[in-house]
Amino acid sequence: MAGALALAVPAVPAAAPPPFETLRWTAPGAELAALTTQPAACLGTASVEIQAGEALFNSPRLLGGQAAKAGLSCAGCHVNGRDNAHFLMAAVSDRAGTADVTHSFFGAARGNGRFDPVAIPDLARPGKVSRDSAGGALESFVRALIVDEFAGREPTPAMLAAIAAYVRAIAPCPDGDPPVRRALDDQLRLTVSALRGAIGMARRGDAAAARALLAAARHQLGLIAERYPAPPFGAERRDLLAASRALADLDGKAADGDGFTTALSTWRAGFENGLAQRLRRHEARSLYNPANLAFVAPQQDNR
């Protein structure tokens, strides 16, 4: 694959749909910004629980209904736990950065029959719900969001605790929050966080949470695949798919204690020492590099 890769990213035919999940809810004209930049996140040193919470926060399959089907996770609205100034969905938003969170489109339980979008809040700022870990108000709020607002399955207490721990850890950055570039490492980090979390959940006997985290890891592998189009990255895509299917094969073994955690550790070591390294070597030629995303611009606002 060497020489031919000089043209690493082939021109995408104008009529072809963009392969990026995030563009499903991105305002016209903001595609390039959404694909290349993100709000900064300053979590500091994150515990395994916080990492697991972040992985779940980024997993559409934590939610249910329309959101899960579309690939929309909590992070779809709260990128890096912050806000999303580019979020726009017809009949759900009235302008970029807003969403009607009481619309029955996502789930009937909180539907109020009115179109009343609100600005998506930055979770690094104080909000209406207490972050105090003593009262459990945040856990209750998150549960209601998952189950009522987005018609998701009932999360386990450990999943709720992890997500709440992550949300509590989100903080503004001391340097004024300049947007940061999106990179392969975002997905690699979340993949590993999900696996660490899955191992931790399995060790405490929470197979449902472990399975949810496997799903979170697989989703991140899919996001990587978006950035490595074939050609020229056919081999990497095949290997990403194989890696995802290997995780899927472990899904039914989440209750299998040591066998499961050993298999996950083996998978992780193989991934980090093999495919992840290859992906890193090719990152400059992938669609993580803004220079290779020029084809996105002509597709702006062509409704």
Binding site: P17, P18, P19, F20, E21, T22, L23, R24, P60, R61, G71, H219, G222, L223, A225, E226
Partner: peptide, 8 residues
């Protein structure tokens, strides 16, 4: 449908 990538 932006099939192919992500959770897709």
């Amino acid at each position: 449908a932006a099939g192919g990538g992500g959770g897709g």
